Amino acid sequence: MLRAVSFLLFLLLPSLSFAQSCNFSISNLNFGAVDTLSGSQTNSTATININCTGLTLQRILICPNLGAGSGGSSSAAARQMLNGANLLNYQLYSDSARSVVWGSFSWPYPARSPAYALTLDALGSASGTITIYGAVQGGQSVVAPGTYLSTFSGGEAPFRYFYSLLSSDCTTAAGTPASPTFTVNATVAANCLVAVQNIDFGTKGVLSANSDATGGVSVTCTPGTTYTVSLNGGTTNSPPTARKMSKGTETVTYGLYKDAARSQPWGDATTPGSTVAGAGNGLVQQLTVYGRVPPQTTPSPGTYTDTVVVTLTY
């Protein structure tokens, strides 16, 4: 009986020592500051670090499944980071070209986990790294400023690994489970863009009556971002309704206004109450600049010009 017991222990102990074991750690994927008004994609990466032990010279197949994360996903193309009820779309990929979405056997979209194989050395150990490629898509101008986050842990990162000589199949839940944790984060900063449309009063003869024309200022600001638009006094630094277009030493007086009736001058901080304020919504907001050349002594013929500086403060 004693021999039988000894023989069974001899068979069992080596088999326990051959069981594979893998440890995973993942760096956080930080996109940093994201400019949602630029229209450009923002890229970043994270790294999976792997350490495995087990039967010498054997191949371990690793399936690093990634689900939607705590922010969820709106489609197969877009995972989401959250800031309260606000959403920022992004995606994770297994290739540097960011064309192959990194998925999981457990989420409802077609993309699956990439397969990664490690071969244990003569001491029964191996290590490696895998890069996760992330991208925040452009064209998200209506996203509000703030810090956005999605967490991967537990069922959102159901890694699997197992001995396999040939297989690269990561479409199932086969293997030993592991659940590393990491976060995806980004900061959307308050931002504004401005563009202008020039004012052309056209060709005039004698300046005996009002001559009106319009131009414009286009403002695009992140949602909720308050702004002020001011117009300086031109090259002669004149008051809002007495700016000067010049040709040499000769001038033509004109004014710029906030309203079609030309009753509200548009100036800068040197003329209190003359600036235009607003709040962004992520879309282009058109502000009309109303110009008027009042009746005045007509100077010699020629082209008269002025340059007005538009300042957007937010």
Rank of each mutant, 00 (worst) to 15 (best):
M1Y: 08
M1F: 05
L2N: 03
R3L: 12
L9M: 11
F10K: 11
F10R: 12
S15G: 00
L16T: 01
L16M: 12
L16V: 03
Q20L: 03
Q20F: 01
C22H: 00
N23F: 00
F24A: 01
F24I: 00
F31Y: 11
A33T: 13
T36M: 10
L37S: 08
S38C: 03
S40Y: 01
N43G: 01
S44A: 15
I50R: 02
G54V: 09
L55H: 08
L57K: 15
L57H: 15
Q58C: 07
I60C: 10
P64D: 08
G67E: 10
G67T: 05
A68D: 13
G72D: 06
S75H: 04
G84K: 01
Y90D: 07
Q91S: 14
Q91D: 14
D95P: 13
S96W: 06
R98D: 03
S99G: 14
S99I: 10
V100P: 04
W102S: 06
S106D: 15
Y109C: 13
P110F: 11
R112E: 12
A117S: 15
A117Q: 15
L118T: 09
L120Y: 11
L120W: 08
L123N: 15
G124P: 10
G124N: 11
G124V: 09
I130K: 08
I132F: 09
G134W: 03
A135Q: 15
V136H: 05
S141W: 07
V142F: 01
V143R: 06
G146F: 09
Y148M: 07
T151I: 13
G154H: 06
F159S: 02
Y161K: 02
F162T: 05
L166G: 02
A173H: 10
P180E: 08
A186T: 02
A186H: 05
A186G: 06
V188P: 03
V188N: 01
V188W: 02
V188S: 06
A189F: 10
A189D: 10
N191G: 14
N191V: 04
A195F: 00
Q197I: 10
N198F: 04
I199E: 03
I199Y: 04
I199K: 04
V206Y: 01
L207R: 02
S211H: 06
S211K: 03
A213E: 00
G216I: 01
P223N: 14
T225P: 09
T228N: 11
S230H: 00
L231C: 09
L231S: 08
G234M: 07
T235W: 00
A242S: 14
A242W: 04
R243E: 13
M245D: 03
M245C: 06
T249P: 07
S263G: 12
Q264A: 15
Q264S: 15
W266Y: 11
G267W: 08
G267N: 11
G267M: 11
D268V: 13
A269T: 12
V276E: 08
G280Y: 05
G282N: 04
L283Y: 00
L283F: 03
Q286N: 15
L287N: 13
V289R: 04
V289C: 09
Y290D: 09
Q296P: 07
Q296H: 04
T297A: 14
G302Y: 12
D306W: 00
T307A: 11
T307M: 03
V308D: 04
V309C: 00
V310R: 02
L312Y: 02
Y314G: 05
